[in-house]
Amino acid sequence: MDRTAILRWLHSAMTSSGHGTKRRIVRFRQQSDYRRFLEIWSDMAPPPATPPIIRHLPLIEAFSIPVSLDLPDFAPLLGEGAQVEEDTSICVHNTVLKPAARDKGIPWGVQQIKAPQAWSATTGHRIKIGVIDTGVDYNHPDLRQSLGRGINLLNRSALPYDNNGHGTHIAGTIAAANQMQGMIGVAPRATIFPVKAFDHNGSAFVSDIVMGIEWCVRNRMDIINMSFGMKTRSKSLLNAVNIAYNAGIIIIASSGNDAKRKSVDYPARYPQTVSVGATNKLRRIAQFSNRGSFIDIYAPGDKILSSWLRGKYHEMSGTSMATSHVSGAVALLLAYRPGLSPGEIKSILKRSMLPLRGLKKSSRIIGELDVVRMLQAADR
């Protein structure tokens, strides 16, 4: 690793006026190489008023950097001990949204998975859920009792306040707790820790997600909700998911809204996650939902009413919405049976599913989330 050449290249990157840039993630095969790079970086004082161009990703011993197309390739400077991949853009999963008046009572999806029948035994008390998303509306009356501080990865000095709405909607389905005046979620006594990794457009980079997973691992979340996806595989994201899985965190991920039969988005495609598809009120697979052998479980995701910005409510459809039902259900399960591993949780979910309607008998090994059956399976 050529120390002088790397310093020269980094200085050029920070002062480059080139407009065309792409972010790259550089992962080191050896911890010693990563530490050597950190030493090189610490020797370099960034120019005044220059925003930090490097995102350090210590969880996977890597960093992300925007590379100007005007600059020469920097990979050879790092030697054979480093691997470079694109820091891919990633988006939240939803299809349709519209404003809606609050519907009195328990939302249909919460009813359909039979969460209310379990509340006498478990409400998700003390279960910590990291929701990597667009943030949350901290002032929403239905969420005030359900939120931890979380983190804003886009602005570390600010609360992870939602300027999109998607994260607030997800949070409401998981753990809203205002049944008398507002809505109630699947696990009303669980605690949501918003991890704001997505901007107001619902977009992020893989490096943002890796930083979010690192925060969840460091702060000992029990569950991570990932209602987003991308089409391409990322070794960096897989490494981060593996580390969280090995730390005992169950990751629930949305499969995507492309109506595909043989493919799902990443990270849901990784076997270390629980991959979720969406159903409708008729307990059939929603038209938009991905489906097939890569789906672990289905849950309500069509025309889901939940909390929104400024204390309001919106109806949304997508596998994102289905994923939040599963995260809430797993919170109920973990409060009921503490200490279950991610593998054990996935097994319980899969063997307690309710067969879907409208499928051939040969397809009935796939099914919809049923909280009562899930708790019964955990007792066996």
Rank of each mutant, 00 (worst) to 15 (best):
V217Q: 06
P116I: 06
N280A: 07
I304Q: 08
L153A: 02
P51M: 03
Y138S: 09
A121W: 13
I184Q: 09
R220S: 12
P267Q: 04
T4I: 15
G328M: 02
V241F: 03
A49P: 08
I304R: 10
W119T: 03
V241Y: 10
L71V: 01
D258G: 07
T279H: 10
P300K: 10
N246W: 02
G18M: 00
V206S: 01
S320A: 03
S289Y: 07
I209E: 08
K262S: 15
N280K: 03
E85K: 08
T95H: 13
R310V: 15
E85G: 11
Q83D: 12
G328L: 09
F205A: 03
G212Y: 12
D70T: 10
A247Y: 01
V84M: 10
R102K: 15
A322V: 06
K231W: 11
Y161V: 13
T122V: 04
G358A: 07
G150F: 03
D2K: 05
N246D: 09
T95F: 14
A101E: 15
I250V: 08
P355L: 05
R24Y: 00
D2P: 02
L305S: 10
S254M: 05
A13Y: 00
R220V: 06
F63V: 01
G328Q: 02
Q30A: 14
L309C: 07
N155F: 06
W41Y: 06
F37P: 01
S42D: 06
T319Q: 14
A278R: 00
R218M: 13
A253Y: 08
P107R: 01
I60R: 01
I297V: 14
I213P: 01
Q376H: 11
L147R: 04
N246A: 10
R126F: 03
H11P: 09
N219K: 02
G20Y: 06
V131M: 10
Y270P: 01
R351Q: 09
P271F: 14
H19L: 03
G165W: 09
D296F: 07
G292N: 04
R24V: 01
I113S: 03
Q111L: 08
T232F: 04
S341K: 09
A253I: 09
P99Q: 08
Q111N: 12
Y313H: 08
T232W: 03
M1D: 08
L238S: 11
S363V: 06
S263F: 15
H169Y: 07
V210R: 07
P355Y: 02
N257W: 04
I366A: 05
Q83P: 12
I25V: 04
D33V: 11
H169D: 12
I132C: 13
D142T: 00
I6K: 04
S16C: 12
D133N: 05
G256A: 08
G328C: 11
L59D: 05
L375C: 09
K312C: 15
T134G: 07
G318H: 04
S17Q: 14
W9I: 00
I297E: 08
F74E: 00
S12E: 00
R102I: 15
Q376D: 12
Q179N: 14
A268P: 02
R29T: 11
V326L: 05
S320E: 01
G339C: 07
M183S: 07
P271V: 05
Q181F: 15
N178D: 10
K281G: 08
F198W: 04
Q181N: 11
N201I: 06
H314Q: 15
I224K: 04
V92Q: 13
